[in-house]
Nucleic acid binder design. Structure first.
Lengths: 281, 281
DNA sequence: GGGTGGCGGTAAAACGGTTAACTTGGAGCC
DNA sequence: GGCTCCAAGTTAACCGTTTTACCGCCACCC
């Protein structure tokens, strides 16, 4: 495989010059640039990203770290996140990295110097992974929030607007707002509709009441459960790929201008009507 | 971040010695090894994989390259493939890399020296990606076969055994074997059961005949279509993750002992009964 | 006509490891 | 006691880039 040295020799310049045209990092006369570029073309030169990364202290690889057990992240996810962030155009590669929830594994990952930054999915209020990343000094962005997100780059669902849309939908059907049920074990029978945010609890409620005749359910989250439930759930879909894209985008911004702390971004869920919401009886 | 130099200094040895204990590549007295290891522990040393890869000409990363459009490969896939191949135990990392079917993108990928080898999914009879890999001199393994697979490391479905199982299933229901229908546009009405290997054609047949009353269908492939079809298709499931694991395994064997060409491995599909096969009328 | 200031280019030192070739000290043997 | 041999360590070159000094040259200006 051809190296800068080969290219330099063929073009009759020094290897530094080759590097300058490669990275557009210092002015070069059009004539010289031409000679270098044709030398590269003739030799089929590809720059060795390892050597580049080692010398420049940057791999231009961003890891999308997601919990091992979560199967919601596949190649489609990474593709759309990458597209949303225009990552390729900005010169970054995205890789999907399943990590355990304790901080160990992620600490190891970034300790090796393989990635420039990490986008952390499914962030918990108290999150060992966040601590590990902070300790390692690796740039990172959060999808979601810790208990105290100030000072961290993060993007999240716009709960306020999403709830408003959800309420609109239910009120449009004729339901009336009331005080939130919170952790109540048993749903009072006068309740005609609920907004659920937890898979298990949703299953529980569905075995207890007839949906949607007796109770309307509007489910907040990823489509996994919603699709297989019977009746199919009306869903406020969490915009996972979009949030991934926003996170990557913010992280890259931060990498390019180290001082900056991009402002948190909020993105609403989208309503996908199913068969679990209907007019109250 | 600590480097070998820091470790060497703290342990009072040369950096070469540190490298030897790191890689088990030359004998070291237990006492020295101890000193080095505790120095590493005290400094929280992680070896920089970039530098290692550059110097050793090996990244120990294997790319699982799959077609862009195929959504069947997600993080679950990579996890099970990795487990099947015991890749981690053997010191390799697997990454999922979506590439276009022309050879360009894959050529670029390997030209950069980022991966030690490639496992190519969904191989076609004539495959530009195979040509690109051969030309680049990168070690690779195929899941599937090209028209002439001799000389390539490859693993595939055990069609012979799978077909035998499929026939057994159908004959058990009372169907009788006959000459294969091949490319016939319209299925003779005396045919009571078919084995299908193509999504589109399967859809076609299902609109033409009543399944399974009038015609039994046994579908060979991935569960994508089979799951959503109505009635749910009886499926010979292609063991994608297992094949991935076998491919990775064979590739690693080859990487470790460059001369060797691991023998092709065949793995049968598994029968998953659905509602599309029944006794003939 | 002698500073001065760009500009286009080069030489060489990193980056953090691996590894071939060479040293050293002590045991084994006649 | 001198010779060989081996095992444990060290030195230094190298992997393929980036990047910081530095250098020579020419135009410009007073």
């Amino acid at each position: 495989m051809a190296t800068v040295r080969d290219v330099a020799e063929r073009a009759g310049v020094s290897i530094a010059t080759v590097s300058f045209v490669l990275n557009n990092t210092k002015p070069v006369t059009p004539a010289t640039r031409d000679r270098v570029e044709s030398a590269m073309a003739e030799l089929g030169y590809h720059r060795n990203v390892l050597a580049r990364a080692l010398a420049a202290r940057s791999t231009r690889i961003i890891a999308l770290a997601h919990p091992r057990l979560d199967t919601g992240f596949g190649s489609e996810f990474i593709t759309s996140a990458s597209r949303a962030a225009r990552a390729r155009a900005r010169g970054y590669h995205l890789v999907l990295w399943p990590v355990d929830n304790d901080g160990d594994e992620i600490g190891e990952l970034v300790g090796q110097g393989l990635v420039d930054g990490v986008v952390l999915m499914e962030v918990l209020l108290e999150d060992a992974r966040v601590d590990a990343l902070s300790a390692a000094g690796t740039p990172f962005a959060l999808i979601g929030r810790t208990a105290d997100p100030a000072g961290f780059i993060h993007v999240d669902i716009d709960f306020e607007q999403s709830i408003a849309v959800a309420l609109d939908h239910l009120q449009g059907l004729g339901h009336r707002p009331t005080v939130a049920a919170g952790r109540a074990l048993r749903l009072p029978s006068r309740i005609t509709a609920v907004i659920m945010m937890n898979e298990l609890a949703t299953f529980g409620v569905m075995t207890e009441r007839v949906v949607p005749d007796d109770l309307s359910i509007l489910y907040f989250g990823t489509p996994g459960l919603a699709a297989i439930a019977n009746p199919q759930l009306t869903l406020m879909r969490a915009p996972a790929a979009i949030l991934g894209g926003l996170g990557v985008d913010a992280l890259i911004d931060h990498l390019e201008t180290p001082g900056a702390l991009p402002a948190p971004q909020l993105h609403p869920c989208t309503l996908e009507p199913g068969a679990s919401t209907a007019r109250p009886r």
